[in-house]
């Protein structure tokens, strides 16, 4: 069963584009990464899923509930972390956490205490005294303390130090192993490559690719590294050429036999052909579209 099912979702803000005809499925129990640069449409998609904004066209279901007509049912089962969490000034962290739990009508005090301890969050601080990272931690606890079925996290680690980032992902992995679905947007590709099972790449509001992280990384693009090459390579399938000392490296996206033919015309001392990492795949999809 799908935790998230997006069907031809389109959102325009007046004349400016949000997302265009986006379709995407995320299975229950998945740890899913939603990758794209700033302004690609990640937050717009998430805000549409949560009913914060209305779609211009298309539809979506979350955990079997429609985002247009059953928002409250969805929100009961979802933990949402916005990219820029803001809270009511004058309140202490513990009051914000209590308010969030009370708005859900459940007692989350034990879970909140455990999360605050793991994330090293001081519950007695006032909202206006919080740093960006600590504000993020409050948002994380609000999103996690009711142990939802689905976590929708928009740029979850921005502002967090590496130790807390690690602890945060440990918590997410535990929840995922218990059966919860994680859907996180990010432009930090190493995070997605390390923790996510599946991922989608979005650009200019359109979905460019959606597959398992391992399949995305094993795409038809290869990173070719030549040592001691004497002649520059020129081919329409070759991009992202990097030369340092006597080592030349490039991305190749054509047929393998054509690559071998090209290489046979060159002299080099050593060759390595590897799958590119996720960041290179990401760049590949972006450049393929004419960036």
């Amino acid at each position: 069963m799908n935790a998230i099912q997006i069907k031809n979702l389109t959102k325009y803000y007046g004349k400016s584009r949000g997302i265009v005809d986006l379709s995407l499925n995320v299975e229950k129990g998945d740890f899913f990464g939603f990758i794209g640069p700033n302004g690609a449409g990640k937050s717009t998609t998430i805000r549409l899923l949560l009913g914060l904004i209305n779609a211009t066209d298309g539809d979506a279901d979350i955990l079997g509930f429609n985002v247009k007509t059953q928002t409250t049912e969805i929100l009961k089962r979802v933990g949402y972390l916005p990219s820029d969490a803001a809270f009511y000034n004058g309140m202490r962290v513990k009051e914000i956490l209590k308010l969030s739990a009370d708005l859900r009508g459940i007692d989350c005090s034990t879970e909140a205490e455990s999360l605050c301890r793991r994330l090293d969050l001081d519950i007695n601080k006032k909202v206006e005294q919080l740093s960006l990272g600590n504000r993020k931690k409050v948002g994380i606890v609000c999103a996690l303390q009711h142990r939802p079925e689905l976590y929708i996290l928009d740029e979850p680690t921005s502002g967090l130090d590496p130790l807390i980032q690690h602890e945060f992902y440990s918590i997410l992995q535990e929840r995922n192993q218990e059966g919860a679905t994680i859907f996180l947007s990010s432009h930090i590709l190493s995070e997605v490559a390390r923790y996510c099972k599946n991922a989608a790449i979005i650009r200019d509001g359109k979905l460019l690719a959606c597959d398992s992280v391992s399949n995305l990384s094993h795409s038809d693009v290869k990173r070719v590294t030549l040592k001691g090459v004497t002649k520059a390579l020129q081919n329409e399938n070759i991009r992202d050429i990097k030369t340092e000392d006597n080592i030349t490296s490039f991305l190749y996206s054509g047929k393998p036999d054509a690559l071998i033919k090209e290489l046979s015309k060159l002299h080099f001392d050593d060759i390595t052909i590897t799958d590119p990492d996720l960041s290179e795949v990401f760049m590949h999809y972006y450049k393929k579209e004419g960036m």
Binding site: L52, T71, T72, E73, L75, Y80, A86
Partner: peptide, 13 residues
Amino acid sequence: HNTAEFLLSHPIS
């Protein structure tokens, strides 16, 4: 005050 997102992400119509 940018708190609408916090409020409206809770299950309250």
